[in-house]
Amino acid sequence: MEEKAASDNPQKTFTCQLCSLTSPFTYYGQKPPNTRAIVLLEECFITKDPFSPDREKFLVLGSICSLCGTYVCVGSDCSLFYTKRFCMQCVNKHLDQFPHQIQVELAKKKQSAKAAVS
């Protein structure tokens, strides 16, 4: 507990601007450490996967919406990746440009969410 140096290191925290999910991240970019052949197709906020028994696995927390620049988590309520990251607000705005599959999927989800509320 005597170590001071480690604690001086300010913590970098990622917060989703839509759902306010907050979590510290260890890396931002496309090439997380120890991933070898794996490359991300967008710049992401990344932490070590706390649920993997293997400490070396990474977990993408979120990234930035390619349209509006909002920080969004990768949760399906907040954002969607389709060649690029889109926050849900932008997706809804440009829903028509998305392929049919995605539109159907989103409509279904909306419905089930409504059902759950009522």
Binding site: A37, I38, V39, L67, L80, Y82, T83, H94, P99, I102
Partner: peptide, 30 residues
């Protein structure tokens, strides 16, 4: 999917014309 044209002239998101589940994955392996 193919039938669906992209006609409205708003911002073009530049999304691929044909749907592929692959596009929904933000990872690639080289």
């Amino acid at each position: 999917d193919k039938d669906k044209g992209r006609d409205r002239g708003k911002v073009d998101l530049g999304l691929p014309k044909e749907y592929d589940a692959r596009y929904r994955i933000n990872v690639s392996v080289c």
